[in-house]
Design a protein around this nucleic acid. Structure first.
Lengths: 157, 157
DNA sequence: GCTTGACCTCAAGTTTGCTTTAGGAATTAG
DNA sequence: CTAATTCCTAAAGCAAACTTGAGGTCAAGC
């Protein structure tokens, strides 16, 4: 039946599909994470004769994108949506990836701006030592901070 | 939401102890959250004759501090430690709060710095559209990374 | 005196993002 | 051929930070 080939090219096999272990090793995420991402629709694979997952090298880029987006604070559901906008039929182009990175770049800017604002206010409060006197802007999240309340807390663990 | 409450002195009774409902209303967190914070050692209370929680006004500042610290990204366990450093016996002074805010200000700076660095790297990759895989895969189709075990962690953590 | 509404406790549920475990099947190395 | 890897699935577990639910107590208003 099949000839004896290194399963999915641990080092040779330049154009072979990648096994889940290959992807894990190259992308730096655990195999279980790749399984998990697949159940969440973030990546895709097909199966070989023995029911094992096979990936194109595209998946490496996708995983890289996922990790970067996570660092910018984007939850997996949003990442999934963004990746879903990529064409499934063809290999994503540089422009595709660029569009994603720009999208998240904006979100990242916003997050940085929020935190910077918080820092400035914290500075003001260090000056007065209050952190909770009634006029403290931190204590009274009037408008600007008001909308931020929830989203900002789950950024970098 | 009606401000009619004889229970533990919402408006008059300037020196009254606060019920858990009072604290919830004034601090903006849910009653269940206050219970939760208490189990975690973030706040304290004593009980009245009917086994209901009573708080000093200090708790309002503590809760405010907790919320602010969370906005800067500090997890509850660390907040607890920081608050534990406050003197239990006396009402915390402005200097006490200032020490806390400075401590978190540093952490916040660090977080902003991390995100800024990430943004800059993202910028670099927007230029080529690759999102910075270890070696840009769009320009590195030879897959040099294939055998070297570790893979594509670039934008450090 | 009874009905409300605020409280109480303790346990379990929720969400996000994974990891771990258990029991097998497929591949590869020697 | 056999042993060692690698992979598979489904389910359960973990951690953070809370919320929800069940069942019951306490105090006040009509």
């Amino acid at each position: 039946m099949t000839t004896k080939m290194p399963r999915s090219g641990s080092l040779s096999a330049t154009k072979q599909a990648l096994s889940v272990g290959d992807v894990a090793r190259r992308s730096g995420v655990a195999v279980s994470t790749l399984h998990f991402y697949e159940t969440k629709g973030l990546i895709q694979s097909w199966r070989n004769a023995g029911n094992q997952r096979r990936y194109t090298r595209d998946v490496l880029r996708r995983v890289a994108v996922i990790k970067i987006a996570q660092r910018t604070g984007v939850p997996l559901t949003e990442i999934r949506e963004a990746l879903a906008a990529l064409p499934d039929s063809r290999t994503p182009t540089a422009a595709d990836w660029r569009r994603l990175s720009q999208r998240w770049r904006v979100a990242l800017d916003t997050r940085i701006a929020h935190l910077t604002q918080l820092r400035d206010q914290l500075d003001g409060c260090i000056g007065c030592g209050c952190l909770s006197l009634s006029q403290c802007p931190l204590r009274n999240p009037g408008d600007v901070l008001g909308g931020d309340g929830e989203g900002a807390q789950r950024l970098e663990r």
